[in-house]
Simulated scan of single mutants.
Amino acid sequence: MTLPPDPGALTPGQARALFRGGLRTPTAGWCAGWAQANLIAVPKDQAYDVLLFAQRNPKPCPVLDVTEPGEPTARIFRGDLRTDLPGYVVYENGVPVAETADAAEHWRPDLVAFLIGCSFTFEGALREAGVPVRHVDQGVNVPMYRTDRTCRRAGGLGGPLVVSMRPVPADRVADAVRITARYPAVHGAPVHVGDPGALGIADLDRPDFGDPVEVRVDEIPVFWACGVTPQAAVMHSRPEFAIGHAPGHMAITDARDSAYLVP
């Protein structure tokens, strides 16, 4: 299936129909004005640990919505969480056992799904202000990295902070911080600006998830907390079962970006 000529002009419903039909693609720049979300779904008996992990680590894990056990829809997502994302990762005992565009055959009646805020939601505001978003410009997935910062543990769940990176011209870093700080429900202001080594990142050209992007001479790498952090915790802590979105392949919700903008 080919990409639509203007993914940004699609409605969430139109985009979800394409994903349900088998289109697999990163979603940065899709459905302009509509918020995107990370997905982590776990059995009901593990859901409290995820909720507590999110409460203790709100920067990478801002919860936007939670489903009832087995329910494939959410208040902010009127599609089907089993089929309407462009990619999923299925975990057993912390090990990825399947990467698929359709998670229906893996979905269990006891699964509780969490929708976690995504930094793609504030990228439109960055671009409107003239701050470049390099992975969108290059047509690749956003680079994401495991850091050496450890999240607060919650029950059986713990692991490293994951961050996404966007190169920002040095004279626009303050603008990027100011703009994104107004979206606390989708990670908010950066967690680090500058030297990736301070986060334990050895090589920007080798992200743990996503694709590398060009960092120009006049640019500074800026790092935001990332909603892939719960999946890194699953891989670290090895719970019995979980389903997450494929990193960068988000749930496009029926909530507006502006719903998460703080005046």
Rank of each mutant, 00 (worst) to 15 (best):
M1T: 12
L3S: 08
P4I: 05
G8Y: 00
G8E: 04
T11Y: 01
T11H: 02
T11N: 03
L18A: 07
F19P: 04
F19L: 05
G21M: 05
G21F: 05
G22L: 08
L23N: 09
A28C: 03
W30P: 04
W30G: 04
A35Q: 08
L39Y: 04
I40S: 02
V42R: 07
P43S: 04
P43M: 02
Q46N: 04
A47Q: 06
Y48L: 14
D49L: 05
D49V: 02
V50S: 03
L51R: 13
P58Q: 12
P58V: 10
L64Y: 10
L64E: 10
D65T: 12
E68G: 09
G70D: 09
P72Q: 05
T73P: 00
T73D: 11
T73H: 13
I76V: 15
I76S: 11
R82G: 05
T83V: 13
P86H: 10
Y88T: 08
V89D: 01
V89M: 11
V90E: 01
V95Q: 11
A98S: 11
A98G: 00
D102K: 06
A103F: 02
A104N: 01
W107R: 02
R108H: 01
L111D: 01
I116D: 11
S119Q: 09
S119K: 08
T121P: 07
F122H: 14
A125E: 15
A125T: 11
R127K: 14
E128D: 15
A129C: 12
G130I: 11
H135W: 11
Q138G: 09
G139K: 12
V140M: 10
M144Q: 13
Y145A: 12
T147F: 12
R153G: 10
R153F: 01
A154Q: 09
G156Q: 08
G158E: 14
G159R: 07
P160T: 10
V163P: 07
P169I: 03
D171M: 00
D171A: 05
D171W: 04
A174Y: 00
A176D: 01
R178P: 00
I179K: 00
I179H: 01
Y183A: 01
Y183G: 00
A189F: 04
V191H: 06
D195I: 10
D195E: 14
G197P: 08
L199N: 12
I201D: 10
D203I: 08
D208N: 15
F209T: 04
P212W: 09
V215K: 12
R216H: 13
D218H: 13
E219H: 13
V222P: 09
F223V: 07
A225E: 03
G227M: 03
V228S: 03
V228D: 03
A233E: 02
A242S: 10
G244T: 15
A246M: 13
T253G: 13
R256E: 14
R256K: 15
R256N: 07
S258L: 14
A259H: 15
